[in-house]
Every structure is written in C-alpha cells, then in structure tokens.
Amino acid sequence: MNAERRPRGHVGARRRRDKTMLVLCILAVIVAVVPLLFILGYTIVKGLPALDLRFFMMDQPPAGASGGGLRNAIVGTLFTLVIALVFGVPTGILAGTFASEFGKPKLAESLRFVNDVLAGVPSIVIGLAVYGIVVASMGHYSGLAGGIALGMLMIPTVTTTTHEMMKLVPDALREGALALGAPRWRMITSIVFPSALRGILTGIMLAVARVIGETAPLLFTSFGNTHLTFNITQPMDALPLRIFIFVASPYNRWQTLAWGGALFLVVIVLILNIVARLLGRKRARD
C-alpha cells in the first residue's frame, strides 16, 4: 500500500471523517429522493382535477375551449403500444432464446453486444431512422411507424431479460428433459420457457413502462392526430405527444389536460414497475 492511500491522522480525526462521509452519503440520498417526491407530488396535485370521466370518454377540445378529454391520445397510445408489442416482444424473446440456448458463446456474446448498442441509441435517433425507413416510403406519418419505433426501443429490454431469466433455469431441468428423449426445441418450449415465463413477463412490463412515456421517437412517426382514429396507416395520437403540445400552450384547459395525461402516465408506469418488482421478487424466493 503506498503512502498516500494510507489513512492519516488521529483516531478521532479518522472517526470524524467517517461520520462526515456518512452525512454526505445521506445528503446524496436526500438530493435524489426529494426531487422525485416533489415531481410526483406536483404531478398529482396538478393532474388529479383533470382525471374525470370526460378525460377518458371525450376527444381533445379545440384551442381555448373548455371541456373535452384525451380519448384520442389514449386510444392512439394503446394502438401504438400493441404494434410495438407485436414487433418487439417476439423479436426480443426469440433473440434472447438464441443467446441463451444455442451454446455458442461467441455468437451469444456478439448478439448481446449488438443488443447493447441498440439499447444505447437515443430514442430521438430511432425516430429519425424510422422516419427515413417507414414514413418516407409510405409518404406520410402513421401510427404504424410510431409503433415500429417504440418496438425497436422495446427489443433490447426484452432480449436482455429473456436471456438472463433463461440462464437462471437450472441445467438439471434441461438435462432431465433431454434424458427423457425430448428434442432440444421441446425441451426449450415446454421446460425452459415456462420456468422463465415470469421473468420474461417482468421484462415485457418494464419494456412497456420504458416506451409508454416516450415522446421523441413519435414526433416524426405517429406525428399526432387531433381526432380519434383507429386506422394505423394514418397519423395517430399518443399521450406524451399530446402532453408535449398542450403543456406549452397558453390555454388553461389544455394545460390541465396535459397534467392529467402526465399523472395517468405516471400511474401506469408506477403500477408496471411495482408489479414487475413483485413478480421478480417472487421469482427469487421460489
């Protein structure tokens, strides 16, 4: 141990330094937790008055008008999410299976690397790329493009959790299935998948929680729509997009609706995170 790293000073001074560091660490916790509670509290106070039946049952009001809700945005978010799930979940689960079950460490390693790279791409860049691929070739914005962008954002989370969860399945189970004469695909589909199912569901929930509040990738893909639509080939609304437009507007009702939408999103994200955490904990206990 070199001299400069050796603790210096009297025992008393060292104890005092120890206490000081403890206080600083507690301060760090406070610095992070207080803004969190502040943000949650502010969102609840500002958003709660907007969350009535109208919020879910009516489309957005015209600029400056009172009344109305965010039905067009809620429905749009729902449709976009379904497209994202259809695109992202099978890809993530099968790619994760590939990484976990193929028994080729080099290939699995490179797949994980590419997956990590995708996880690090900023969501706005995903939006730009999907604009170039889907919107430019269709000729107009669409809910489909938005769903594809969100699906791309989901893939890394689902792949990683599937991979991790399947690795946790004991090899004895696999060997048992193989010893009974099951081919590997039967072993995976009827032994490994069910054992890892809860973990994989957790991953899907976290992926949904991650993308449901995403605004940036939808700006030039779904684009937003002031009217209710069920047509995914047309521009489609989404809650975060509507919030973004409304919060910066000068109209009272729009701002109230924006905070209502924000609270709605936060509640969904919180529920998803808590359920995912409970599921994950149960898994660890089993």
Binding site: T91, V117, V121
Partner: peptide
C-alpha cells in the same frame, strides 16, 4: 424440429443486427 426452431431464433437474433444497420443506413442516406 431443432434446425427449424433454432433457425427461427437465429433469424430474430439477426433482426436486431438488421435494425441497427437499418438505423445507420437510414441516417446516412437521410
């Protein structure tokens, strides 16, 4: 069964690579 299943999984593994490459190509051409 095995080759089909594994081929299927490998295909979706390749989708991830394809997505990353598609992002890059789309950005460059744009």
């Amino acid at each position: 069964g095995d080759p089909i299943f594994f081929g299927f999984c490998a295909l979706f593994g390749a989708v991830i690579l394809a997505v990353v490459i598609a992002i890059l190509i789309s950005l460059i051409s744009g």
